[in-house]
Simulated scan of single mutants.
Amino acid sequence: MCEEQCEGSPRRLRLRQHLRPARQRRPGDFRTRVSATSGVAAAAGPGDRLAALEAELASVRAELDDLNLLYQATIEHGEAVEDQLAEANLALQTTQKRLTEELTEAANYIFSILPEPRTASPVTEWLLLPSTELGGDSFGYHDIDADHMAFYLLDVCGHGVGAALLSVTAINVLRSAALPNTDFRDPGAVLSALNDAFPMERQHNMYFTIWYGVLTRSTGVLRYASGGHPPSVLRRADGSVLTLSTPGIAIGMMEAMSYRAAECTVGAGDRLHLVSDGTFEVETSPGQMLAFQDFVDRLARSETPGEVLDWVRGLNGPGPLPDDFSLLNIRF
């Protein structure tokens, strides 16, 4: 824009007219003209010498005017560029502010759909800490009917807006039981239906892992199934520890997959911990990852999710965790 304004300005046109003959001169031209004038002076009278000097002075003044014009044009061009940079910087700041506000709004929405901690049995306590503004972890629990209650935690590959959108969509599908012809009391059937509903080819090549369990209150039977997800950890009231998982790949990676459920019984005083891989995939030293069994041992001794987070952060060292930290504790 500045280039065009300067190109067409009367000042620039006049500058070109003045500079055109000046550019054809060489640095020694002035000395040559003085020598020539001196040579003429030797053969001419005082009047001729004065006329030659006046002509030379006029030429020098013209060159000075040209230089002043060039200086003014340079200043004007610099000011125009500075104005353009200021406008661009203001637009960038405005856009950045808007994006930050939208990311904050999206993060607030993700947390708003998470369930309130339960104080009645089974009691729940949870902690979600995304590694970036928007993560791909989410979880939930709800009554399917008077005798059955579902618990689930999922982890979408990657981070950012795309992962968060897929995570929220899958959670809302589970909460609203929006999978046609699916018995939500059967964890295997739920995972198979999710796999059919969310093929990665239709989700920008994103997939997710999940652990889904259903408690039958009247019998204490807990049925569960997992798709590519870390095992959940069951600490019984007597101190024994079980890890609960079933074979199966992540949801959406391969079509027409069939997932099967397993089951165990839970009783008063038992605790179930649903985790994402971000809770334990940290380095204990350069190049050395935390062993899952060490994590299980520490998790089984914990009382709160915050206690586990502090321990993992201590292992990880300063800075954010490499992945989303999600932990859902359920006390029966």
Rank of each mutant, 00 (worst) to 15 (best):
S276W: 10
L222E: 08
G220I: 04
I251A: 00
L234D: 05
R298M: 09
M257P: 08
A261R: 13
R298N: 11
A256T: 11
L215F: 12
G287D: 10
T279Q: 11
L222Y: 15
P305W: 10
S226F: 06
S302E: 07
V275Q: 04
I249L: 14
D297E: 12
T265M: 05
A237V: 12
L215G: 03
M257T: 06
M253N: 01
L244F: 08
A250V: 00
M257H: 03
F295W: 08
A237D: 10
G213I: 02
A261D: 13
S232P: 00
H229D: 09
P231R: 02
R223V: 04
G287H: 12
R271L: 03
M253E: 03
G267E: 10
S232R: 04
R260Y: 15
S240G: 11
L222C: 06
V266M: 13
F295P: 06
R301N: 08
S276Q: 03
D238S: 09
S258L: 14
V241W: 08
L215M: 07
I249W: 10
G278N: 06
Q293H: 14
A261L: 11
S245H: 08
R223E: 06
A256E: 14
D277E: 09
M253I: 09
P247Q: 09
L290C: 13
T246G: 03
V275H: 07
G252F: 10
A291G: 15
E303P: 05
I249H: 11
S276N: 03
R236P: 06
E281N: 11
T219W: 07
R236N: 04
L290P: 13
V241L: 06
G213N: 09
L274Q: 01
R217H: 15
D297F: 01
A225S: 11
M257Y: 02
L299N: 05
V296G: 03
G269Y: 10
S285R: 10
T304F: 00
V282T: 03
G220R: 07
T265N: 11
A262L: 03
G248H: 02
L274H: 12
P247A: 02
F292T: 01
S226C: 08
A225F: 07
P286H: 05
L274F: 14
G267M: 08
A291W: 14
